[in-house]
Design a protein around this nucleic acid. Sequence first.
RNA 1: GGGUUGUUAGCUCAGCACGGAUAGAGCGCCAGCCUUCUAAGCUGGAAGUCGAGGGUUCAAAUCCCUCACGACCCGCCA
Length: 654
Amino acid sequence: MENRTLRENPFDLFRQECRAVLAQALTKAFPEVSSSFIINLNKTPLLELGQLASSISFELAKKLDFKPLVVAEKLVESIDKSQFDLIEKVSTAGVGYINFYVNFPKFSQLTLKVIKDKNTNYGYIKTENPAKIIVEHTSVNPLHPIHIGQARNPIIGDTLASILRLRGHDISTHYYIDDVGRQSSVVAYGYQKLGKPRSAEKPDLFVGEIYTVTCCIVEIDRLKKAKNKIDSAVTVDDVKIAQELDEWLTIAVELKEKYPVLFEDLMGRISKDENPEEEINSLNRRYEAGEPVARQLIREVSDLCLDGFRQTQSRVSVFYDSWDWESDFVWSGQVTKAVTQLQASPFLYFENNVWAFNADKAANFLKLKSKLGLKENHEIPSLTLMRADGTTLYTTRDVAYSIWKFQRAEKVINVIGMEQSLAQLQLKLALYALGYSKEADNFTHFAYNLVALPGYKMSSRRGHYITFDQVLDEAIERAYQEVCKRSPMFSEEEKRDIAKFVGIGAVRYALIDVDPSKQVLFTWDRVLNFETNSAPYVQYTHARACSILRKATDIPRVPVAYNLLTEKLEQELILQLSSFPDMFIEAAEYLKPAAIADYANTLADKFNTFYGALPVIKAETPELCSARIALTDAIRTVLSNALSLIGVVAPERM
RNA sequence: GGGUUGUUAGCUCAGCACGGAUAGAGCGCCAGCCUUCUAAGCUGGAAGUCGAGGGUUCAAAUCCCUCACGACCCGCCA
């Protein structure tokens, strides 16, 4: 097993050799302290300083009261590299570093051969602990189209799933359909008032319009009534109500302009209701109770919206293994069961007529705070589990859903915005409180920061958003302009095809490239970047490599002489290629999808530098030509494998 | 008020989990390179008190503490 893994991971093989040779030297030179030192090796900042370095001399020097350089020299003298294949030279440097130099002829051969041999599987080192993992992602409420603020989620989720799957885990991707909350009743209410219409528009877009307009009308109605009720003594609340009402009236003007027919239609119908808000709440209660008419209605409008989602998702090649309806967990009694079980714990209390979960008490009692990285004196807010009318709340339902997920998987990763961190923490604590501690340990909230629009906040309720489809359309259109400009020789059909994978690739890359914890300010330029550090750049580089390889087929074949790859640029490329497995493992173990994009960009960068500086097909000798072709081919493979991980097409031409 | 999270070049970001050698890219700006393998490219240049202050260490962008500023959360919303 280990041998096989090493054979697939050239750089790790070199690292293991360095570690072993240094361990031997340590035992020989300083037997008295050798066992207490862990050998860490770092990459060097420069190729000229070797490929790996140890700073162990600094630590040893302190302990032994020598100068670091003296220690380093003694260690280097004690090194016997004769039984190690890949180590060319070991030497001291600076004030006490020990630098390890790789034997490039052997290492180049090893790396390029492994890549050629593993081909489309190169780099995807399998875990020794494969697990069944559920990745829940996207889970946008079926009320409106997926907007750009939410689009980061499916891309991150899909990329994570793909990385973990190639790591050897058994991955199941789940979409949680949140159809139970009050907002589902809002859209269903509007939809019903309109007589369950069909539209020529994309269904999620249409549902989104109904949702926003209904929200607006109902909110204005509610706020007006609230305002009328308290007219005499003006309080802080009154001011707030007046402000909110003003805001909604402004939105109403916008919406009337955007959807005049729909607005008037809904206005006319809703105003006939004495109390629209109560109609909505009643619908919500009936839905949770599983009343057939309510079921039929809400499922119908949700399905309509989900249809639209699937269209969008298939454009970016995101698919799900399972679509899980939140309402099913209510109807099946699993939510009630979870609440009942929680009631048996000492962490529930009944206050103001509702049951609440004392998350803080649970965390203290079960001694979880330090484990979860929380300060001991930090009080975790409680979680209300049910409404007074007996209907359930979001996080409570999620508890039941999580238990269900753990019946199907050992680990659960929820890709959910960081604004839900507290709810996800309370959920996790509820799992501990229920005795699912192993499960709770294996429960990960993969939080990401939201995408914001410059100037104003995106709000689905208010209808302020740019849809994911709009972004994709724009990306493809701009990519088409670029193709026409840069590659006029392609046929119209080819141009359209290229524009599609370039545009979509650019968007996927832009959404995965930034660290998830950072907020992204949405600008078109950022998402539709076709230059360095973008998917199009990496795609272009891949196509460029392919182009060389196509032309190289006429070249008479000479056995590859790996020792001819002596240029610094070539060696840097070899190193970069050999590190792909390392990078992949890190991205998988620490859930860092952005690392893949960074890697691909760096490799593309190095290849383009090489491309500009050194000829491949027109290399000085047939032997060198052959070696550079082998190098180019390996780069092509690795670029393709990296792009594949992030769901971006690796084209042969563009 | 409490919590989570962020702050690195004019702008957008890597690097931080695991401290290590001169802090890296892109955009923008300036100067160059297409009769030679795809110019969505390449070469060179200008540009940084790594938010501030303290601490730990042989060594701090990275670890610890305090503070400042921003985002988000603290609901019988999701």
